[in-house]
Every structure is written in structure tokens, then in C-alpha cells.
Amino acid sequence: MTETTVRIVTGETKENWFSRFKVVALAAITLVAIIGKFYLPRLIPNTEWLELPLLLTVYFGLMRRSQIASLFFGAFVGLAEDSLSPANIPIGMYGITKTLVGYFAASVSLRLNVERRGIRPLLCFFFYFFHAFFYWIMRRALLAQMVPFDLQESFVHGVLNALVSIPLFVILDKIKLPVAASPQIRSTKWR
């Protein structure tokens, strides 16, 4: 598939094709996001729906535009999240889910102009939904934990996360390194 990827909506030049980040800033933000996920609900009730790690993964995937880097980032975030999650859920559940999210986010970014403001919340909503659904599938299939899937709730949460993503992504845009240095486009080969 990678071979034949064609950019459908990208109207950009090759130069700012993908973004790079300050490693330290990225790491710090990731850490905050992960911890936030588990401590925010304790500080402020009813904020379990907030999926900062997921939003971060999606953002990174969309902006970095590298499938491999994104899937590793997703895996890292997911595993970190797993190690903090309750012990009845083994490590790897979020890891696998977020790996896929990272991969697909990067794949999508190859085809869409993700710099557009409108498309990003939409993608966040979609990935939230995918994330929740896949996670639920994995719990059912792998752990035989028969938790119900609340479609309505997921929908509402997805919208909420999408809304949060708008300001969040704006903030995150600030930590991007100004211009991508590498001229090489790795995901596509042109003959």
C-alpha cells in the first residue's frame, strides 16, 4: 500500500511535509498527559472521558507523518499507560490499541492535509471511537471481560475529546520545530 500511496488532498510542498519535535518537550508533555489521565479524574470528578494520551498519539501521528515512528510512539504511550492502569488489565492492552492508532493516524496523514483546522477534530473523534471500540474488542476477545460497550457514551466522549483537541493541538503546534529539515520523503517512492 505504501508503494502506491497518493496524496489526495495535500496541497503542500515537500518542504513542510512533516514535522519534527523537541524531544524533551515531547517527552514532558507525554508524561503529563499520561499522569493526567489517571490523576485528573481524582482532582476533578467526571473527567474519565478525557483521553490525553490518545489525543497526543493522534497528533503525533498526524504531524510526524511517519508510520513507523508513530506506531512506536503509540506503543510507548500505550505501554506507559498500561503500567499505570489497574492491575486486572495486563500490560499491552493500551499498547496494542495505541500502536494501531499511531499507525493509522500516520497512514491517514499521508493522504489528508492535516494542517486544516477542521479536519483534525473530526479525526480525533474518529480515532477516539476506534480506540474505544478496539479496546473493548480486545478486552472481550483476549481477556474475556464481558464489559458492555456503551455506544451513546462513547459518542459523547468522542465529541468531547474532539472539542478538547482543538485548543490542545494549537498549543502543541507551538512545540513543533519550525521547519522540517529533512528533504527525504520516506513513505513514498516515486519512480
Binding site: 500500500m1 508510520q67 506503543a75 500502536t99 494501531l100
Partner: peptide, 10 residues
């Protein structure tokens, strides 16, 4: 490569 890496990681 990407597909393989994805597969391996998962």
C-alpha cells in the same frame, strides 16, 4: 517495512 514493523510490535 512499516507493515512488518507494525506486525512485529503488535
Amino acid at each position: 517495512r512499516t507493515l512488518t514493523v507494525l506486525l512485529i510490535v503488535i
